[in-house]
């Protein structure tokens, strides 16, 4: 009994920390979201969000696209990785995690200098004469050659594509890791049992490995989608400010010219609810006690 009390005591710093920096701010957000500038109760902050419907839609769309791309790229990698020898697996995982050791901002700046109109990629294409070639072909096909505008770069920076690229680049490991860790734990004898019962390798994958890897897939989806939908610096740096996302919008309400913490809180609250709905749906899908969703 005494021991249990002592054990409970050791959690006090954590509880105080959480109360101060998580619970109280959450309560404040809820309070602010329902408060008018004058200080009274209002629902105005939520109706004001209608102006930002486009931002909501764009955020959800870009996050969804990034998640799907991460899944398409990440699943085969995770599956292939689980089939390799143990030392290869260790090295590959280390390499996967390596970019994570570099600051997020630095990585994004690096992408900027790669994608810019006069950046590395465009310069490279220019040097190998790709644009000259394209111009020549286009000119010969054009019906009105005099109206043809020759190109000297691909527009990569400041596009939605660049934002999605940034999300995929930054969050891909969070898709690969949970899927890999689930697949690698699948009991080998279950796969042999399926082969024994007449399943060729495609059927083994379809009927055994894939269904058993779903908890990892769900976990990966959550771990990519949630940070993607709330990311804020990526769109500014890679999307050129024209592709404002929810995170940027919230920042704008608190720090920027549109200063309105009441609307900002309301947006934050709605975003939290969206994320919670996503997680609940995910958890419902993978209704097993060995659920791998963690965040």
């Amino acid at each position: 009994m005494r021991n249990r009390k002592m054990a409970a005591l050791t959690t006090v710093p954590y509880v105080i920390w959480m109360a101060l920096f998580v619970v109280i701010p959450l309560v404040l957000i809820v309070v602010y979201a329902f408060t008018s500038k004058a200080g009274g109760f209002t629902l105005q902050n939520f109706s004001a969000m209608g102006d930002y419907a486009k931002v909501f839609a764009r955020s959800l769309w870009l996050a969804l696209a990034a998640t799907v791309i991460c899944l398409i790229i990440g699943y085969p990698v995770a599956y292939a990785l689980s089939k390799m020898g143990p030392s290869f697996q260790r090295t590959a995982i280390m390499l996967l995690m390596l970019p994570m050791w570099i600051n997020f901002l630095l990585r994004t700046y690096a992408w900027m200098s790669l994608l810019e109109n006069t950046g590395l990629i465009n310069t490279f294409f220019d040097n190998i004469g790709l644009f000259d070639l394209i111009n020549k072909i286009a000119l010969s096909l054009a019906s009105d050659p005099s109206a043809y505008q020759p190109i000297d770069h691909f527009q990569m920076i400041n596009t939605q594509g660049a934002v999605i690229l940034g999300m995929v680049y930054n969050y891909l490991p969070f898709m690969i890791m949970p899927i890999y860790s689930v697949i690698v734990k699948i009991d080998r004898s279950m796969i042999e049992a399926a082969q024994d019962l007449g399943a060729d390798s495609v059927t083994v994958f379809r009927k055994v490995i894939f269904p058993l890897s779903l908890p990892g897939v769900l976990s990966g989806i959550t771990m990519v989608f949630v940070p993607s939908v709330s990311t804020f610096i990526l769109s500014k740096l890679l999307g050129g400010g024209m592709n404002m996302l929810l995170g940027d919008l919230i920042e704008l309400q608190f720090m920027g010219g549109a200063y309105n913490p009441y609307v900002g809180s309301a947006i934050s609250l709605v975003m939290m609810i969206i994320v919670m709905i996503c997680m609940t749906v995910m958890n419902r899908f993978g209704d097993g006690e060995d659920q791998a969703v963690m965040l």
């Binding site: 009991d187 004898s189 279950m190 042999e192 049992a193 399926a194 055994v208 269904p211 058993l212």
Partner: peptide
């Protein structure tokens, strides 16, 4: 199989 290897899903 030794540990049955039933499909848990």
């Amino acid at each position: 199989f030794q540990r049955y290897a039933l499909f848990t899903h």
